[in-house]
Amino acid sequence: MAAPNTRLDRDEIVAVRQPLTNTPQRRAMLGKLKRRPSVRNSLIALLVITLIGLCLPFFAQQDPYDLTSFSVMDNRMPPMSESFDGMVFWLGTDGQGRDMLSAILYGMRISLLVGLVSTALALIIGVSVGLVAAVLGGRIEALLMRLVDFVLGFPSILVALVLLAMIGRGVDKVILAIVMVQWANYARIMRSSALSERRKEYVEAAHNLGYSTGRVMFRHVMPNSLSAVLVLATVQIASAITLEATLSFLGVGVPVTEPSLGLLVANGFDYLMSGAYWISFYPGIALLILIFSLNLVGDRLRTALDPKRS
């Protein structure tokens, strides 16, 4: 079987585009993901953070939401100091006497929650809008895509600030604000990849077999145009967390009773000049690790999924 070269090249490209359910590709992808130590470390960091977030009470020595568990007497103690009842504050305490390590762990959970939930919601909305625009076309497409342009035209921080100023604070409201500014990214990517997918012959075949538009859209076009959007989503989780931290830092994000990493940084900001650097510094480091890991993994995922690079 001396197939011409073009055929072989083609087979390779087709193989890389395959769903991940297939072992050789999955193995190759995971291999590519693992090969670089920085990426491997990021993956480990993410796993650890997620694990800690899931079973927090086992790791945190204090519940920062429980006002009776800490004393204002312990306020602004430096790292490694001991409280009067013998507890060691590894990373010091904040202005209310809360253990910084516990506050960071709880804050990470909130940041991660906001990042994941808002990305998932934005993904669902964006994918639906992009898909409908690509498949239906015409006026509906023009209307939806101009709306997308409109949303993308504003700086996301400005839109989120205005929204939160109107509807107030709260984890759910922050999520809503992030979804409102991020869905348009997915819609645009989804539309373009669905448009290129729609021209392929298997979609023509699906129409020709008399399938309904909805079936063609969700069973045939969508599964094949999702990969680009999913890669974008991994990077967007990090940007959602950043946005949440920024909003909280500016004082319109999560409420003071449920501090996220951004709010912790903001709380410590007042003490920064008076030498209590740890209140801002350690939450900032935690935020950095979280976002850096997410970005590295997302970036590497994109490279691994791209047949032309890697």
Binding site: R10, V14, R17, Q18, P19, K200, E201, Y202, E204, A205, A206, N208, L209, G210, H220, P223, N224
Partner: peptide, 19 residues
């Protein structure tokens, strides 16, 4: 009509849903 007239496509690489 739709089912009575069917089509076989040129490119067997793009005429089947890869998923």
């Amino acid at each position: 009509f739709t089912l009575g007239v069917q089509m076989v496509f040129q490119d067997p690489y793009s005429s089947l849903n890869p998923r």
